[in-house]
Amino acid sequence: MIQAKNLKKVYSTEEVETTALNNVNIEIKEGEFVAIMGPSGCGKSTLLNIMGLLDNPSDGEYHFLGHDVSNRTERERAQLRKGNIGFIFQSFNLIDELTVFENVELPLLYLGMSADERKEKAEAALERMSMMHRRNHFPQQLSGGQQQRVAIARAVVANAKLILADEPTGNLDSDHGNEVMKVLAELNEQGTTIVMVTHSPHDADFAMRVIHLFDGHVVTENMQEGFHV
């Protein structure tokens, strides 16, 4: 599903050049659950952004679903992103002015679906996350765990093939964190590919494979016990 060859990302300001990624080679197959770990500033989030088509690499090749997408315009990337990739953030990133239902429905709006279809799919996604009873609430009225479940519902509502999660449990206590991880594991069992950036070894245990990054390099790739691709 994802092939990255010699990926390089350099941020430059007027005076300093920072290399966030340096010759990163990664391959992720459909149905995998991969955790990316590493200390702060090692390039985890940069890698995730490139995988999620939010950013272009400075150099190297990046293939997504068989397309070379290393140098696409923002518009083209947005087109590919829609419906294919779902995002989950540490800080949930729900729109405060929209209700739970409206937040979940949003990706479908951008896919141009009819109101009936949107309703059906959004309700199904909320059902799946056990959040139907909260459909008319606003994000601020929910607990952190509930907000993250809504965010996951939003990520899966369009049947995304790939879910990118950036420290999904980072803002949650351990109980809620566990809950979220279980949901992700279930999604993976049902066939969704998941790539997750995390600091937590506990969370990483849910993944089949852990990629360690350090100073922009892939250091190790460990296959977790008991998982088979």
Binding site: N93, L94, I95, P107, Y110
Partner: peptide, 16 residues
């Protein structure tokens, strides 16, 4: 800005 970010992530193009 946050709303813009989310909308863009979810697939909104600039024109929208």
């Amino acid at each position: 800005a946050k709303e813009v970010g989310i909308r863009k992530t979810l697939g909104s193009v600039r024109k929208q």
